[in-house]
Design a protein around this nucleic acid. Sequence first.
DNA 1: CTAAGTGCAAATCTTTTGCAACTTA
DNA 2: TAAGTTGCAAAAGATTTGCACTTAG
Lengths: 144, 144
Amino acid sequence: MQDSIEHKLKSQGYKITAQRKTIIKAFVKAKNHLLSAEKVYEWIKEHERNIDLSTIYRNIELMMNIGVLKKISLDNHVDQYKLSVTNEHHHHIVCVSCGKSEIFKECPVSLIEKSLINKIGFTPIEHKLEILGYCQECTRKSRE
Amino acid sequence: MQDSIEHKLKSQGYKITAQRKTIIKAFVKAKNHLLSAEKVYEWIKEHERNIDLSTIYRNIELMMNIGVLKKISLDNHVDQYKLSVTNEHHHHIVCVSCGKSEIFKECPVSLIEKSLINKIGFTPIEHKLEILGYCQECTRKSRE
DNA sequence: CTAAGTGCAAATCTTTTGCAACTTA
DNA sequence: TAAGTTGCAAAAGATTTGCACTTAG
């Protein structure tokens, strides 16, 4: 995991710095818990040396660009992130209490709400579904 | 619409001020387009008198609290809002190009992605689905 | 009249950016 | 050594707050 991400960075011409390693490590350790930039910063400050927040933001962006990190914005003005190595389409079940998230690949909501979630003991209290794309008019305009 | 919202405010002991009326009007006029606080501010500045941004924020929060406004956070650090009078469970299809949104009540994603969306000419490019609730552990803890 | 609401200015909070100094390959 | 990266400080952008003044009921 750590290695494969570093390899991916290296293969795209990015340098492997101590800071980068540490930031990746923080996400690997977090497993499926969502981390905000601030949380990453604090984890690193506690477990390793200090890394500037701006460095963390820059590397989070980098990791998103190379496709190993996914952003999840809830409604609280703090972006959260987690590693996402698979290319398969999937969604996340996020615990609003502890921040832990799990991946599910069976997309339709009906499956989710009924069996899938109950099967793992998750108590859904709310779900957000936004479908982004182009409406009829904008689809037409973009063709012109 | 305008009246029913004002009535709801009044019935809960809030005063009907000129500013409040105008803010509601902006959302009513916007129909199903999402509006950010800034957009509301600009619309009002253009069509009516000036209202301070803080007043707009305070009233947006108020309207969310009484359940007539819904917040939709996309990934761009700008909260957007739209009137939501129905109590029925529903989701939104949001055009990333023009900001127009539509409600759909048939929830399962499979329906959405297949027929429903194509039926209305919407071109989905991405969809966000977050299910919020409590994971197994937190569910257990909350029972204790 | 008086509690609620507004405008203004300043504060907060998250995220971004410019730049000089420092590393990695 | 050169291009990429970092830390620091400052900026930016969205949202919130304190407070004196104003207004709806």
